[in-house]
């Protein structure tokens, strides 16, 4: 009797809390994207500055907080043997999603440490690429949320992820062509292209995760 008395009320309470933690973890990814966008806008407007460093600090805090949520979710899923048939897949999914925050953070660190001097003529291309990559990540987050709540909607969001990834690739190629066609020195060209590749990495990673998610969705439908 003791077992059932303790188990039933906590069962639904625990589920509700975990649901909210998963939502909060995904909120952190969206928040990181917003901070990242603001940080790049500041950087392209003012160059390396205190405001940019403040955004970097904020993204660090968001990343730590997301890590805490992820670890807590992982512990709870294993401790209480929740969603047995999806546990491993969900944990893998959340770890991949967590990697997106790490990319946001790592890119801002690169700007902070290497302080690339980007000619004004390329600013629009960089920001366009960054916007598209963030849209790609945001669509992925909507797809992940749908995986948990509304399985039928996953496909719509995954389609958007693929679209934005392809757009990001096109922008990345175009801007890199422009850079390498310029009269800048090779070292500078390489440095500028390096930043483009890392901004584009966000969209590529989001697309990889959407592939995993598509398979998981089929599995959940069965």
């Amino acid at each position: 009797m003791n077992i059932s008395n303790r188990r039933f009320p906590s069962l639904f309470g625990r589920a509700k809390k975990l649901e909210s933690q998963i939502d909060q973890f995904l909120d952190k990814v969206t928040e990181a994207g917003l901070i990242y966008n603001s940080a790049l806008l500041v950087y392209f407007d003012q160059g390396p500055c205190d405001d940019f460093e403040k955004y970097l600090q904020r993204i660090l805090t968001v990343e730590e907080s997301a890590d805490r949520y992820r670890r807590d979710i992982e512990t709870k899923l294993y401790e209480h043997t929740l969603i047995p048939e999806f546990r491993g897949d969900v944990l893998e999914l959340l770890e991949h999603v967590d990697a997106l925050i790490n990319i946001y953070e790592a890119n801002l660190f690169r700007f902070s440490i290497q302080t690339p001097k980007i000619p004004k003529v390329y600013h629009k291309g960089y920001l366009q690429l960054s916007d598209t990559a963030i849209l790609c990540v945001d669509s992925l987050i909507l797809a992940v949320r749908s995986f948990f709540r509304d399985i039928e909607a996953v496909r719509d969001h995954v389609t958007k992820v693929m679209f934005y990834e392809s757009e990001a690739d096109q922008i990345s190629t175009r801007v890199q062509r422009e850079i390498f066609a310029s009269t800048l020195g090779l070292a500078r060209k390489r440095h500028l292209a390096y930043f483009i590749e890392h901004i584009d990495e966000l969209a590529n990673k989001a697309e990889d995760i959407s592939d995993i998610l598509s398979i998981l969705t089929i599995k959940r439908k069965i």
């Binding site: 069962l11 625990r14 975990l18 649901e19 969603i83 999806f86 948990f148 959940r220």
Partner: peptide, 13 residues
């Protein structure tokens, strides 16, 4: 459109 985690709790019950 039940959340996967809540569906898990309902299923257990």
């Amino acid at each position: 459109k039940i959340h996967l985690i809540r569906l898990d709790a309902y299923t257990r019950f």
